[in-house]
Amino acid sequence: MTNQHRTIPGEAGKDEHSPPTPASLSRRTVLQLAGGVASLAALPDAEAQSLPSARTDITAVEPVRLIVNGVSRELEIDPRQSLLDVLRETLDLTGTKKGCNQGACGACTVLVNGRRVVSCLTLASMYDGAKIETIEGLEKNGALHPLQEAFIEHEGLQCGFCTPGQIMSGLGCIAEGHASSPEDIRFWMSGNICRCGAYPGIVAAVADAAGRS
């Protein structure tokens, strides 16, 4: 039969769950306890009283007006929200993709007042009144945009995840006058990564669309 209680030499009659006595405390434990008490005592009264209530208001929102694909949207948003999250989660425009969420892959590229931006690094609250264009806004009356058609014709996509960002960046590249040669296109669209490696088709599609415009 095993014993239900263990005894410590010199402490017969006390079980293992008894609170430690001063004699059983190690020097390390005593020093740790003393240090904790001293640090609490060193806090100024005002600071100690403020600790429990040191909270920020995380529910604050602010109004913002975005003109998204030609439609004015009045929103109440958290000022810390990225434009990408507002587009995807608030407006349900999920064509704009969340890739790296660090501004490195270009999958979230949209046009803001005609200029391309990576929306994952852009606070929506910074663009009150701005015109936002996403991949969903390119189709008109059932007809694809010429650049969308060119992507299909030149097979500028494989898995398709990066394609919305590639197309929006391509539109910006053309509008900026940076699509005069394949070399220019490759340079000015180098911020858009295609992990499938469909770059020849992407460059050909942008060059084709630039020639049509």
Rank of each mutant, 00 (worst) to 15 (best):
L31E: 12
V68W: 00
L51A: 09
A38R: 06
V64A: 03
E62T: 15
V71I: 14
A34C: 06
S50K: 13
D57K: 08
Q32D: 08
G36H: 05
L40A: 12
E62S: 15
R27Q: 14
V71W: 10
T59H: 05
T29D: 15
A42K: 01
I58G: 10
I67S: 01
S26C: 04
S72T: 07
G36F: 01
G35I: 01
A48S: 15
A42W: 04
N69G: 02
D45Q: 13
A46H: 11
H17G: 12
L43H: 02
S53H: 08
A46W: 10
L31Q: 14
T29Y: 08
I67K: 11
V71E: 15
A38F: 08
G36I: 01
D57G: 03
A34N: 02
V30Y: 05
P22S: 01
A48G: 11
A46G: 12
R65W: 00
V37A: 14
R55W: 12
P52M: 04
P52S: 06
V71N: 12
P44K: 03
R55F: 13
P22M: 00
R55H: 15
R55E: 10
A60K: 15
S18C: 06
R65M: 03
L33P: 02
A46Q: 11
V37W: 06
P22H: 01
V64S: 04
A23S: 11
A48Q: 14
P63S: 10
D57Y: 08
I58M: 13
A34K: 01
V37L: 13
V37D: 06
S39H: 00
R27S: 15
L31P: 06
P19H: 09
I67G: 05
P63K: 08
L33H: 13
S72G: 03
L66Y: 09
P22F: 03
L25F: 07
L25C: 09
A23T: 04
L43Q: 00
S50P: 12
L31R: 15
V30D: 06
P19G: 00
T21W: 02
E62A: 15
Q49H: 09
L25M: 13
P52R: 05
E47R: 10
P19C: 01
A54K: 08
G70P: 08
P20E: 11
S26R: 02
T56R: 07
V68F: 00
I67M: 05
T21V: 11
V61I: 10
A38M: 07
L51K: 09
T29M: 14
A41D: 05
S26I: 07
E62W: 00
A46K: 13
A23E: 10
A34R: 03
S72D: 09
S72E: 05
A54L: 11
L51I: 15
A41E: 03
V64R: 02
A46R: 12
H17Q: 12
P52H: 00
N69M: 01
D57Q: 08
I58F: 12
I67C: 02
A23Y: 05
R28F: 05
R55N: 13
P22L: 02
A23G: 04
A34V: 10
L31H: 14
I67L: 09
P19S: 08
Q32L: 13
L66P: 11
A42T: 06
L66A: 07
A54E: 06
D45L: 14
S39C: 14
S18L: 01
V30S: 07
